[in-house]
Design a protein around this nucleic acid. Structure first.
Lengths: 214, 214
DNA sequence: AGCTTTACAGATCATGTGATCAATAAGATT
DNA sequence: AATCTTATTGATCACATGATCTGTAAAGCT
């Protein structure tokens, strides 16, 4: 009879019995769900709610992460890591390709990576919380993307308007704001983000009189 | 002797005795400090910490606001209200003034209003929390600012590029991102925001071939 | 000065929350 | 099948947190 009960419990969705997973696997499972969870409810989300989503006990979380902050650190890393391909700096400075093509390629790929609900919200939450990873990421972005981009622009600028770092920020901000509208403010966005992105890039190039094939 | 103790306590900064304030005044005092407080630590800030800042007991807060959510509502209203001057719609559509001058005037004033730590952060926190006021504000912005702006732009556009709402969003996002960098990401911003703002506007006009005096 | 009103403080409740630990059972090994 | 290892649970602790309630004293009035 107890066997019958056990079987019925096994068919019950998820609530059945404890399932043992290899530590590595369970750890990943926790992190993956934690990303979705904290991205939705914010960094002050409760560990009990996260555990409920995972279908495990709250105490299990503390078997894999000493503190909640440690778990959040893992979430940050999971989200931040690999968000910036290492080959972009060279591709952005490859002068055998027109600057416009380089900018288009970069922002098409980059936007595809960051216009994602989890990333956008975790980034904003951690930014508001003053997380260190946030500052480091932006510093990194400035070093490997914006600085080279400014140099490339300056070397091609035809108009009398001198490109500054603020121009790069304006280009970047205008594009990123598409994602902010969608995932932070939860507003409808453009059907094809590629279009406004391309337009933003063309507007940028036009300001400095840089032709499309330069 | 007890009198002496009383006197020494009175000289103690703030921790002395209870000070009776008129309810209206106290309520305003609470709201004002709550704005600063929640803008800094987030909407999950604790009522006890807020009370400590005010130099009153935590229970007093609940004498003025039935729940913490009520207090937050008051904070929202305080921050959101009056952020959009009512006369902007007409000023933006006053065709006796060049569009460039109108845009400059608007964004100079608007940026002065919103590039403020409290507003920026409360807006972002409430946006992430999905607050209704947030959506209403953005809807309002679209109705009374963006829509007219699009019409004005379309009526003056000379180039073959057709202005869309996404172009307005790009102009707006690029400018607002200056404030996001400063107050959300806590990065250094431009010394004079007027300069990059003006440049963003000129870039926008240039895309549609609109001369400065049109 | 004495009285009344009520803004305020202090204690307290009920629940929430991060974290701990001994007991248990799932799955591998023999 | 019996045994061992350890991933997982359930109970629990200590403290935090929103909210309540009663008593107190500060200001206004007579």
């Amino acid at each position: 009879m107890s066997e019958q009960i056990d079987k019925s419990e096994k068919t019950t969705n998820e609530g059945s019995s404890r399932r043992r997973l290899p530590p590595k696997e369970r750890r990943q499972q926790i992190i993956d769900e934690a990303v979705r969870f904290f991205a939705e409810v914010g960094l002050s989300g409760k560990t009990r709610d996260l555990a409920k989503r995972l279908g495990v006990t709250q105490s299990l979380l503390f078997n894999y992460f000493a503190t909640k902050d440690d778990l959040l650190e893992a979430v940050y890393e999971k989200v931040y890591l690999g968000r910036l391909s290492a080959d972009w700096p060279e591709r952005l400075t490859d002068r055998s390709v027109p600057l416009r093509a380089r900018l288009l390629a970069f922002y098409q790929e980059y936007s595809a990576l960051i216009f994602e609900r989890h990333w956008m919200r975790i980034f904003m939450f951690s930014g508001l919380a003053g997380a260190d990873l946030n500052h480091r990421y932006l510093k990194h972005l400035g070093d490997v993307i914006f600085r080279p981009l400014l140099d490339e622009t300056a070397s091609l600028a035809q108009s009398d308007v001198c490109p500054t770092m603020e121009d790069i920020w304006n280009l970047h901000g205008g594009i990123v704001y598409i994602g902010i509208r969608q995932h932070i403010y939860c507003m409808p966005g453009p059907e094809y983000p590629e279009e406004p992105i391309a337009k933003a890039i063309d507007k940028y190039l036009l300001l400095f009189g840089i032709p499309h094939d330069a």
